[in-house]
Structure formats: C-alpha cells, structure tokens
C-alpha cells in the first residue's frame, strides 16, 4: 500500500476508534464492578492489526488512548487505559504471530489481558492490592467482551480484507 493511502487510512481509522470510544461512553454498560467496559474500539485495533500491520496498530492504539482520555476521561483513565491497551495489544500481536489462532481467540485473550493490565496499574495508583478482589470478575468480563468483540472483528475483517 502506498504511503499516502496508508496515512489516509490511519486517519479514518483513528476517527473511527474515537467514535467507538464515544459511543461506549454513552452506553451504561455497568454492573457495579469498576473498570468493566465493552471495548468496542478493540474491533478497530484488531482490524488494523490484521489488515495493515503491527506498527500501525500500536500507533493507533496509543493515539486513541491519549485522545479519548483527553476527550472523555482524565489523567488516570489515560494511565490505566494505556496499560491495558499495551498489554492487550502485545499479547494479541504475539498470538497472531504464532499464526495458529483465529481472531476470536486472539481477541478473547486480548480482552482478558486488557483487564489485567488495567487492574495492575489501578492497584499501583491507589497503593492497595486488595483491588485485586475484582480480578475474577474482570477476567470473566474480559473473556466475554473479548469473545463478542472477536466475533465482530472476525466477520468484519473477512469481508474488508480485500480492500487493503
């Protein structure tokens, strides 16, 4: 893909990821457990990872977290979103690199790792390790949301891949 086209694609996808963040902030997806989210933006990140490349996915993920943090969150939400996003993307990249797993699995593991990263940073920020009380709930949430997002991303990427 030419460089110009690449930059244009990245811009569009960054906008899409931010829209997903915004939509997510509107949905009251909340069951009394802190840090639980649907992770809609992960669809965009996965599609970038599979259709464009690793570098692009990291670049987009970092920009997305910072911009969404400034728009809809605060300093702390940037901090722990970043930890979750980086851990999740790294795990997804490594799983993808093995070439043995489908998007659904990659996304599910990514979802779980996102919550682990987030919770780890949260416990450092508040200097209280009993925050890990929520770990089992967040792992289950990460599994379910990661699976759903993975199914979505799989279907989209199968249909969209030929445009890249």
């Amino acid at each position: 893909m030419s460089k110009k086209k690449n930059i244009a694609f990245m811009g569009v996808f960054l906008a899409l990821a931010l829209v997903c963040s915004y939509v997510e902030s509107l949905i009251p997806f909340y069951f009394g457990i802190p840090g639980m989210k649907l992770g809609l933006t992960n669809i965009v990140i996965i599609i970038i990872l599979y259709c464009m490349g690793t570098k692009e996915a990291y670049c987009l993920s970092v920009l997305r977290v910072i911009l969404a943090g400034f728009l809809f969150g605060n300093m702390f939400s940037i901090l722990y979103s970043m930890a979750g996003a980086m851990l999740s993307l790294t795990v997804m990249y490594l799983l993808k690199k093995t070439g043995k797993f489908k998007i659904v699995t990659v996304s599910t593991l990514g979802g779980i790792c996102h919550n682990i990263g987030q919770l780890t940073v949260a416990s450092f920020v508040v200097e209280n390790y009993y925050v890990f009380y929520y770990l089992p709930f967040l792992l289950i949430a990460g599994f379910i949301t990661g699976l759903l997002i993975g199914i979505g991303a799989q279907e989209i990427s199968l249909r969209v891949k030929r445009f890249f």
């Binding site: 043995k100 797993f101 489908k102 659904v104 699995t105 599910t108 593991l109 779980i112 089992p136 792992l139 289950i140 599994f143 699976l147 799989q154 199968l158």
Partner: peptide
C-alpha cells in the same frame, strides 16, 4: 474454516479453566 479451529477451542477452554 477461517473463523474457528480446534486449536482455538483448546486455548479458549484453557483460558476459561484458568479463570
């Protein structure tokens, strides 16, 4: 066949078990 394989099922089952 592009969506899901046996290996995926195994890894997902393992993750579920750990959780």
């Amino acid at each position: 066949g592009k969506r899901f394989s046996k290996r995926d099922a195994w890894l997902l089952a393992a993750a579920a078990l750990v959780i």
